[in-house]
Design a protein around this nucleic acid. Structure first.
Lengths: 240, 240
DNA sequence: TGTACATCAGTGAACGCGCGTTCACTGATGTAC
DNA sequence: TGTACATCAGTGAACGCGCGTTCACTGATGTAC
């Protein structure tokens, strides 16, 4: 039954160790400290050995980015139930994660473009995208939402929102989420974009300390924002 | 009348050249490319010469950061009048600047904490903070705003908002802006924080390409967001 | 106006450092007969 | 079960590179008398 050979197991173990070390360096000393030599040093091997695992430093960084996404998604999945609603659970969890892991957050969600790699949120195949969409779908299926009518949405935006609609429907179908398709109007898509912007804005602001004032009770501010958001959307628990 | 000596003038000119070169490197090759040696190379001088102008590389980067803030503020000041309202003019201008200068935006508004330096927005003495506050003050003085009553604001937040109120009053008084003090209720402060978060969220999302979908008409999306925001706040031009 | 001295922007060599990547290699682990 | 061969994780030396910072210096510019 020991299908994987000793070599295979050792290799897998080392690979995990490499990424663990890389992440520790990222967390403790910032992105510039994640060098092949530093990782090797920490692991007690020589730098060229790492080329058995990664084509180059850039390759390693990219894999690291993906691992961070996967871990984030796993953490969001494992979140305990929240009293108000599942999307807000994800929002709170995401915020907690961002505050606890600012360097990882920066690498994945706030790195300047140009590296060519598509952004995290746009890769629906990537775990975090899936999670966020699944939660959104769940909310749409469970709650009553007050959305702007389609003709209140500027014509220039309709095409983009329609594409989003299509992609979201596809992703939801794939993940097997049950939802009433007729609830996915353009207005809902618009709201989702606005909500994501607001959540992302608050979290980024908090992580980078760019609120116009020092906030002594940041948890309260975030919760108030969520409540405000729910109020605006007319979000009321269907079972309450 | 040539008060400044030849040496003084030359020194000033070189200082400007150094920062211009540093910014070009930042813009074209990212933050890691801003090295003393690269700057010196570009300028046709030797690296140690830069120590006549800056204590260290970190010092240079910090001064660069401040210069970027000053330039941003100057640009915001010079903005042409906008049909709707002056705060939205600043919002649009800020967005345009961020999109046109992603590396500068990242350095100033989206760099992980830890360097000890206080954040940009919190330094009211810094130009951009002043501008934003002045515009906000102007809006408050000119327009009718629907704000949540003070007792609708969670008690945990009141202390922070009150501090913000005090600081804002001070900054406005200093800058000589005329405004009705009684309009600066806590609800207004809360709204300002929320608005800033939303604007910052959208801009950061756009700069880093983290919208959940590719947006083909980003200008329209931003303008729609501004309109949405104005509607929510009940912001109506007093003279319209 | 002329001379002696002080200032100080910029030089050039050197310091010690860490980096990514290549290459030919060793030696333990795995496989086929 | 034993032997010959293949695989491949990791080595160690070397490549060429760029970096921040220090130091004693030169020589033009500025100042005081």
């Amino acid at each position: 039954m020991s299908d994987p050979t000793r070599r295979t197991r050792a290799r897998a173990a080392t690979e995990i160790e490499i990424r663990r070390t890389a992440r520790t360096l990222l967390v403790e000393q910032g992105p510039d400290a994640v060098t092949l030599r530093a990782i090797a040093r920490e692991l007690g091997i020589t730098a060229p050995a790492l080329y058995r695992y990664y084509k180059s430093r850039d390759d390693l960084i990219e894999q690291l980015r993906q691992e961070i996404c996967a871990d984030l998604a796993a953490e969001m999945m494992a979140l305990p139930e929240q009293p108000d609603n599942p999307l807000f659970a994800i929002c709170r969890g995401f915020r907690q994660w961002a505050l606890a892991h600012p360097e990882e957050f920066t690498l994945v969600f706030a790195s300047p473009p140009g590296t060519g790699a598509e952004s995290t949120m746009r890769k629906y195949g990537e775990p975090f995208g899936r999670i966020f969409l699944a939660a959104a779908g769940q909310v749409l299926a469970t709650y009553a939402v007050v959305t702007p009518p389609t003709d209140a949405i500027p014509p220039e935006l309709r095409e983009d929102l329609a594409r989003f609609q299509t992609e979201l429907l596809g992703a939801l179908a794939e993940s097997g989420t049950v939802f009433p398709a007729d609830k996915l109007e353009l207005g809902v898509m618009f709201l989702m974009v606005q909500m994501w912007a607001r959540i992302y804005g608050h979290i980024t602001l908090e992580v980078f300390g760019n609120y116009p004032i020092p906030v002594s009770k940041p948890d309260a501010l975030f919760d108030t924002t969520l409540a405000d958001l729910a109020r605006e959307v007319g979000l009321v628990a269907a079972d309450a």
